[in-house]
């Protein structure tokens, strides 16, 4: 019986670790995207990656760690609020930028790779 509970706690730890590592991976990928992409509207998409999947996965991981407690309920509530407010905030920023006349870049964006640029010169 004791062995079973130890095994269960290890499984829960691994599950939580998996969720949180995946979540933090999405957060970092979104952050890199925000730095790399060329204009405001495209950066917005990268920021959305963080806001949706990254945040929810980290919160699920924390809920598994917290177990069946009040803290877990609060974390779920936090995830629910983020799920509702983040698209609204993104839409508000995008709509404000669009109404203010910030023109979206609509051409194909493909910067020359440093490797290709070197080749062209050589």
């Amino acid at each position: 019986m004791d062995l079973l509970s130890i095994a269960l706690s290890i499984i829960l730890d691994l599950l939580s670790a998996g969720f949180m590592l995946a979540g933090v991976g999405f957060v970092l990928a979104g952050t890199i995207g925000v730095m790399r992409l060329p204009d405001f509207y495209t950066r917005m998409h990268a920021a959305g990656v963080t806001d949706t999947l990254g945040a929810e996965l980290i919160i699920i991981g924390l809920v598994i760690q917290a177990g069946f407690t009040l803290v877990a309920a609060k974390l779920l509530l936090l995830g629910f609020f983020l799920f509702l407010t983040s698209p609204t905030a993104t839409h508000a920023v995008a709509n404000a930028a669009y109404k203010a006349g910030l023109a979206p870049m609509l051409s194909r964006f493909k910067p020359p790779h440093p490797r290709d640029a070197g080749k062209g010169e050589g």
């Binding site: 990928a29 979104g30 992409l37 060329p38 990268a46 194909r108 493909k110």
Partner: peptide, 13 residues
Amino acid sequence: VKVSLKPDLDIQP
């Protein structure tokens, strides 16, 4: 994530 992390960025908004 795949699109925005590709070494040579290629997007068409």
